[in-house]
Computed example of a mutant assay.
Amino acid sequence: MKSLLAPVFPGGIIAILIFYLDYFQFELVEKFLLYAAFVIVPLVILLLNHDEKNKHQRMIYAAMKWLQFPAALLTLASVMSNKMWGLESTEIPGILSLGWLLFTLLLGIYGLTTIVISKGKAAEIAIGAGLVYFFIGGIWFTLYQYQLNLFQANPSTHALSSLHFHFSSAIVPIFIGALGRIMKKKSWYPWVVAIDIIGPILIAIGMIFSKPIEYIGVSLFACNIVVYTAYLLAYLRKNALDIKAAFFLGLSCLAFYTVVVISIFYPLLKNMYSLTILEFIPIYGSLHAFGFVLCGLIGWVYMVDFIKEKANQSAS
């Protein structure tokens, strides 16, 4: 029987090699961006619904499935040309990055079509917004590879902004949208979606122009994730679901709360073990990227399959 996650295996192998082989002399932020291109995005594509009667949406979906891996390879080539091939002073890294930019544009277009045909459904709007944020992440990645200064921000800030939009900004709305598809209607849910769409923009603006705005965006976003994880854990406890879906979604929530606990106790740990914030960043990043995001996406992929099988059984 073919695994649900089979489309992600080739990219997953490449991502593992990028993280663990000394051959790839990349910055940590670049490794996480490549991990997003090779692993996170194909998992997101597996989650997406498309209307078979909508020819344009069906064509975009097929194009995304076929072009994702070549676009990720171009992203890898872009970073390698900048860090390993001695082409950092040329236009080559920037030109190669355009492949990922165009692919994320395709994701953004799909997201907009999802919003347009959603007929006001908050869950679909959240998912569509998450896909649009991937495109914004693609823009920041291209700016980083061209080493351009924009809005008084240096290329390092562009890399962090790209990472922000490839992970939290894109993934959390998609998670909340996936939850909205299965939860009973709640009056507060549209507000969660609205904050989830506004929060990443505030964070991005704050990273460049104003720290207070960034703190407001981060606080709103974190509160939204608390609401999402709390409701999801309650849902998992009350409903009989696929064991793999429940396991990975539970693990995703646990990873988020672990990040929260570590953040709270960071000042104490810093004094006890003389650890700097730079030494904690890989811990935060790993828990978020491999725990909250990866486990959450895998869990939702299994959940979507479980719901489809249950619907087919009910129909027959």
Rank of each mutant, 00 (worst) to 15 (best):
T157M: 11
S3C: 01
M1A: 12
L87F: 15
L46T: 00
F306D: 15
A159V: 07
Y273G: 01
A6K: 14
A77D: 06
I18V: 12
G199N: 13
I283T: 07
L43Q: 06
L112P: 03
H158I: 01
A153Q: 13
Y189P: 01
I277L: 15
A245G: 06
G12P: 00
L4Y: 09
A63F: 09
G128P: 13
K53S: 07
A37T: 07
Y133P: 00
V261Y: 08
I225R: 03
I125Q: 09
F19H: 09
K244C: 00
A122P: 01
N54T: 01
T75R: 00
F175P: 03
T114W: 01
F151H: 06
V44A: 02
I14P: 12
L275K: 13
A178I: 00
I117F: 11
Y61F: 06
L232M: 12
W191S: 14
P190Q: 02
Q25S: 14
G250T: 08
V260W: 11
T75W: 06
I277E: 15
C253V: 03
G291T: 10
I201P: 03
A204W: 08
A234M: 14
K270E: 12
A122Y: 03
F19L: 12
T157E: 11
L233H: 11
L150V: 15
L148V: 04
F292T: 02
G199M: 07
L107Q: 03
T276E: 12
E91W: 15
L98M: 13
I171H: 04
Y231I: 11
D305K: 12
V79L: 15
N54M: 01
A245Y: 07
L101F: 12
I198W: 04
H56R: 15
W66Q: 06
Y215P: 00
I195W: 05
F32T: 00
F306L: 10
V218L: 11
Y189L: 06
I195Y: 04
L232G: 06
T113D: 13
M303K: 10
L241V: 11
I14N: 10
K31P: 10
P42G: 04
Q313E: 15
S89C: 05
Y228A: 05
H166F: 14
A170S: 08
L102I: 03
V293I: 14
G291L: 10
M207E: 12
V259T: 14
S210Q: 05
V29R: 07
L34K: 06
F151E: 03
S3K: 04
I174E: 08
A240I: 09
L98N: 13
Q25L: 07
G94R: 09
F306G: 07
F167I: 03
A129K: 03
F151M: 13
A315D: 13
L105D: 12
I136F: 13
L96R: 10
A15W: 08
A129E: 01
G128T: 10
L249M: 15
W100N: 05
I205T: 14
N49C: 02
F19D: 09
I195S: 07
K2R: 12
I264E: 13
C253Y: 01
F38I: 04
V8D: 09
I115S: 03
L131T: 10
Y266A: 05
A311M: 13
V192P: 00
I16H: 05
F69K: 08
I16M: 08
Q313T: 04
